[in-house]
Design a protein around this nucleic acid. Sequence first.
RNA 1: GGCGGGUUCGUCUAGUGGCCAAGGACGUCUGGUUUUCAACCAGAAAAUCACGGGUUCGACUCCCGUACCCGCUACCA
Length: 479
Amino acid sequence: MTMVRTRIAPSPTGENLHIGNVYTALLNYVFAKKNQGQFIIRIEDTDRQRLIPGSEERILESFRWFGINYDEGPDIGGPFAPYRQSERLLLYQKYAKELVEKKAAYYCFCTPEILEKMKAGQVSRKEIPHYDGRCKNLEAKVVEKRVKSGEKYVIRLSVPDSGTTVFHDLVRGDISFENKLIDDQVLLKSDGYPTYHLGVVVDDYLMKITHVIRAEEWISSTPKHILIYKALGWNLPIFCHGPILRNPDKSKLSKRKNPVWASWYKEQGFLPEAILNYLSLMGWSMPASVPLSGTSAGKPNGKEIFSLSEMMENFRLEDLKPVGPAFDLTKLEWLNGEYIRNSKFETLSSKLSEFYQKKYSEEEIGKTLSLVKDRMKKLSDWEGLTDFFRERPKTFEEKPDQKILTKTIPVLEKSVFEKDVMEKKMRELAAEINVKAGDVFMALRNAITGKKATPPIIETMIILGKKESLIRLQQVIKN
RNA sequence: GGCGGGUUCGUCUAGUGGCCAAGGACGUCUGGUUUUCAACCAGAAAAUCACGGGUUCGACUCCCGUACCCGCUACCA
């Protein structure tokens, strides 16, 4: 059996790595690793207009953050370098010409203006817009002359006007297209860069990609790719079109309707493992041969929370579902909270310190962490949950009960700051002045933190220290 | 419009002809625990399995049609 090789091919046309790409990369990565194969990253930077400077670096950096390790890529090289399409132009030009020689493609001199007119005419006649093939049968000599004269040209795929192109998809079975309905795609643009269609085929072939795992949106261009493979006499890879992630309204996931950049999730304090776990829940589950009643059937060990390696052990492309799932931030937050709660104390304080770019030391974070750990859904929640440890309250969500506070101060002044002792004294005091113990704790909470909801107040006061706690109480009384 | 893909609780999903008067998870709601909030525990509501026809002793599961949703329809990927 040949070595499995998969790839993700992002375009540096966005701010950062798109979460949909993270999803597709995850599928490719897990599949390759499950089969002891290689996973590679190829940068498809052929759209010079939409290119965003720095995007590539940010994309690669995001992959590293996720721990999606690639065996070959633009920055680390590999046996089939370069891994950046802009550095492989000669290759595409060579194969485009070969395609022309084999009559599977042709030179086209139609200008954008001509094409626009063509389309307008077709639309007004209620025809399906497509390239009408007017350059398809240009004589070789004429073509040569026009090219030599410096006229701009593109190379288009010559699609047969009869027959059908069929391919097998691992998730969806056989899919067929009528050739006459396939447009004569541009393969090589007038700037000498290939379009996606030429680029993928050439590179996937040259880089020995065995499984093309990508999103559903590529299904309709696959027949064009097949035509190229066949014309060049190349073996087809295995095609697998997974689901496409959707916005809550079910349209294709987009930045207008849902956060999409990996960097956004990082800044929000989502953990990469949690995001990957969440993503793996979408569109993938194993056949539940044993009906696991009462559990999440179809998930590793019947649980929705599982690691990347647990996913790897069980992953099969055939188990992917064709249905596009809606991205649900709420569930991601829950999962992230689970990961936070299950983190080791040291790991979490180190992650938090890192998250806040060392603004807080691990030690400082460690002091209050156990009090707020269960209350965090995202790393970014920590600051807001602990601000009163760093600053005296300036405003009060609820006015502290002065009467109760006045009574607590002398008791606390005389008390050692130890949990059991303090709690006992406060309860006794409550009984003495005939109020509920909860009222005493709430009065203290309001005064000490300015908030209505905080971790247990006695423990909070102990961390704050006797002196600081009393100052805060006295200040409230004074005002 | 054409072509392609899809359709089980609000969302993610289990289900491959009888075990399903449909199971789990998130969310929602109720109760418990509790010093408030979380966390935790217990429970509830929530899908006429898109709809209509077949096939079959029997269909969420197979077939056909309809509706709706999504994708593609660029010298963007």
